[in-house]
């Protein structure tokens, strides 16, 4: 474990080598995805059609929205298990505040804004506990995973809120220029996060924190502030995911987003981000997301049932990391 971190930090010495390293990792993944697409196309002629692929974008959105900040967090060596619960809580808050027969009856826009604020607050609480009190991220978010889900159940009292106005569904079900509305949102966030991570001092600081937190501290990076910021960002994105999801399924339930954290983490690590921190990229995460979604969809279209599909996805996850590890080690051995 430590030797691989050392290996990686060796790589970090020059920016050029770092970029070459990342590029390779993503190229490998991209090739894997191409192979998968090729095989899946043989399985069903309905798979490689524009309609089908765009439609899959709807199912990918919520996971994608939380996987982007998750990439940031994992790069710093942290983890956020509470994203699914934050999504559930935000969905409930949205419905609870708007509910025309409920105690608040806020306008829908205000309810959405407030639920996003709650998302940020949840993330902020995670960040504060991690940074100011020093509880490790895994335990903090394991606790808030239970806490936020519990709050969602408590506030909702197991009641769903339904019958939103028709225009609200546009985000989750409508299209803009022939593309599902929410996919535009994902695209914007992908570009923003990719730029932040690779082109800003903030982004590069995240790698530094993941590689060597103490060193990052000594070199003047405000580690605490940055850490709190990315957890708050994660909360915000979970809130946005809730908004899109409620709009897509037209109801709010306290069990929404259950298990979302594992899907997001799977996409991030499949995308080549090291779970120990210090390396990874948004492009990798996007490829990871797309690969998993295409497998789910393509296998189903080829007549594989859901249980078989998740077996394949689990296997691909392990194999992909295995192959990538092997190639990376060979590559660094050659150099």
């Amino acid at each position: 474990m430590t030797s691989s971190t050392l290996q990686q930090s060796d790589e970090m010495k020059s920016g050029v080598r770092l970029r070459a390293f990342l590029l390779r990792q993503e190229v490998v993944l991209f090739l894997m995805m191409m192979i998968a697409i090729f095989i899946l196309t043989l399985g069903s002629d309905k798979f490689l059609t524009l309609d089908n692929l765009l439609n899959q974008g709807r199912f990918l959105t919520e996971i994608a929205l939380v996987a982007l900040p998750m990439t940031f967090i994992i790069i710093t060596g942290g983890i956020d298990l509470s994203v699914g619960s934050i999504m559930g809580l935000c969905a409930i808050v949205l419905g609870y505040m708007w509910n025309p027969t409920g105690p608040f009856q806020w306008p829908l826009e205000l309810a959405v804004a407030f639920s996003l604020l709650v998302g940020v607050l949840c993330g902020l609480v995670n960040g504060l506990i991690i940074v100011r009190i020093g509880v490790p991220p895994l335990i903090t978010t394991l606790a808030t995973l239970a806490l936020y889900r519990g709050l969602a159940e408590g506030i909702s009292q197991a009641r769903s809120v339904r019958n939103y106005p028709e225009y609200f569904y546009e985000l989750g079900q409508g299209t803009l220029l022939g593309v599902p509305t929410q996919l535009w949102m994902v695209l914007v966030f992908v570009i923003i996060t990719a730029i932040i991570l690779s082109r800003t001092i903030f982004g590069r600081s995240l790698y530094a924190i993941g590689n060597n937190e103490l060193g990052a501290r000594f070199s003047g990076i405000p580690v605490g502030l940055y850490t709190i910021m990315i957890y708050a960002f994660s909360g915000l994105m979970s809130g946005i995911a809730a908004w899109v999801f409620v709009s897509r399924v037209t109801t709010t339930r306290s069990d929404m987003g259950t298990g979302l954290e594992l899907d997001a983490i799977a996409a991030v690590v499949l995308g080549g981000t090291s779970i120990f921190g210090g390396s990874g990229s948004i492009v990798g995460t996007v490829i990871g997301l797309v690969l998993i979604q295409l497998l789910k969809n393509g296998l189903a279209l080829s007549g594989v049932t859901t249980d078989g599909t998740i077996v394949v996805i689990g296997t691909v996850l392990i194999l992909a990391i295995l192959i990538n590890n092997y190639i990376q080690r060979r590559a660094s051995a050659v150099e």
């Binding site: 199912f59 919520e62 999801f245 399924v249 339930r253 069990d255 929404m256 259950t258 298990g259 189903a300 049932t305 859901t306 249980d307 998740i310």
Partner: peptide, 11 residues
């Protein structure tokens, strides 16, 4: 043919 998620999950 029967096909469904392994957990009672709406999504």
């Amino acid at each position: 043919t029967t096909d469904a998620p392994t957990e009672a999950n709406i999504d």
